[in-house]
Design a binder for these strands. Sequence first.
DNA 1: GCACCCAACTGGTCCGACCAGTGGACTAGG
DNA 2: CCTAGTCCACTGGTCGGACCAGTTGGGTGC
Lengths: 252, 252
Amino acid sequence: MPKSPQFQPVQPVRAYQRIVEQVEEALARGELTPGQRLPSERELVAQFAVSRSTVREALRVLESNGVVRSRPGDPNGPEILPFSQAALSKQVARLARVDEVTLSELIGFRMIMDGAAIQVASRLRTPEELDELEATLVAMRDAIDVDFDAFSQADLAFHELIARISRNSLIQTCNEVVRGVVLGLISDKIAHAPNSRALMLESLHHHAEVVDAIRTGDGHAAARIARQNMFDYYAGYVPDAEQQTLLALIED
Amino acid sequence: MPKSPQFQPVQPVRAYQRIVEQVEEALARGELTPGQRLPSERELVAQFAVSRSTVREALRVLESNGVVRSRPGDPNGPEILPFSQAALSKQVARLARVDEVTLSELIGFRMIMDGAAIQVASRLRTPEELDELEATLVAMRDAIDVDFDAFSQADLAFHELIARISRNSLIQTCNEVVRGVVLGLISDKIAHAPNSRALMLESLHHHAEVVDAIRTGDGHAAARIARQNMFDYYAGYVPDAEQQTLLALIED
DNA sequence: GCACCCAACTGGTCCGACCAGTGGACTAGG
DNA sequence: CCTAGTCCACTGGTCGGACCAGTTGGGTGC
């Protein structure tokens, strides 16, 4: 049976949108690469044959998407930026802010995500990477004596390394984005916790256990410990009822 | 030891950015909810005490972030939109387009992600939800006789249900976003595959096995089958070398 | 050779104007 | 009375010109 023609609702295409499309397509085709410069606004006005207002609206869209950056007075024009996960984080943060996603969901997601990454990493890791993991543990130990920020930094390095070992940059990006959003929500509370040093020591201990399990190749154990650690670290900041849901995630 | 004051590099804040911030904060505080309308541009000019160009640049940023939508001639003014993952997908698609993320990474991510979701779902599922899963299998079977789009739709429903059962909307969002990007890259190839019907039947069979494993509560088996299915379904579209990496993900 | 200054740019913002649409009020017709 | 049609105030999209503060690079004076 022949399909009836699929008519699309026709919508007016704004001029600034077509400018955005042209720039993004040039980027996709590789004609524009990070570090390069766009012509100045007034030059773009001539090339696109539109007014400066229109060019500027297009630039604002590109800028908010993390594609370019304009600086006043820069004679080289707007700069093409390398990809950054900042725009991604912004979207996830918005998602969390409008309460479509709760803190416990974010933490649950990290438990699942990080556990899976560690499980994969425990099978793919090379001896050299195992050494690197050990090194991050030392760095975390040292950071405890500095302050919470330093420890948080070292913890981030650990998780970045795990994501790298799992050979999937999406996992890494995903982890960092969600981690950033979670910390943005509660980092102040953690930093002011009276027993923050004890928490950090406990976390370090858990991380060491994870590395041990990775060394012996026991991915399930490593993932389980990692989830347990994540729970212990963050559970205090979510309502009791939702803690039960998170608890259920720990078991293998 | 007293901390030295943490000076931040001062950067000029553009007027349109402050407008964006004000709107987003109003949204975060719940003073603005989806469906509501913003005042007209000319009214905003008066309220913010800036020019219309500035108001418009702010609106363009909000619009590109999926926060509002302006329609020409609408006397009610710009509309506050409900959250949509479209903006999120756009960012991930950009990530994939600049080749920072390869197709095999996207698929590997889905294997890990979907496997984890299924594993969690197999423990949290209620009897009613199991019935729902069975129903989606029937829908998939029926869709095979229609066309690839219908099957793809039914497959999406299955994964959405899995994500819902896993009690974490982030997993659902994540899956849908990555799924959309992957399909955007290769859906045409799949649809024109000569053996597309055989592929769909095979996929259906795998899904049924997953549901069986969920029924018996064997989360590991369910996850493994799901990863295997994902691999079989998509592996043909990635280079041989990267197929090896994906194969390593299947085992538990 | 060095530090300084200046002019030619840049982007940020403002103003005023025109156009093609939209939608509600208002009116003529039943 | 209700309906159908018209009309107009207002919307957003685009344009052009203008001014300002800031950056930059080259020329100038020491």
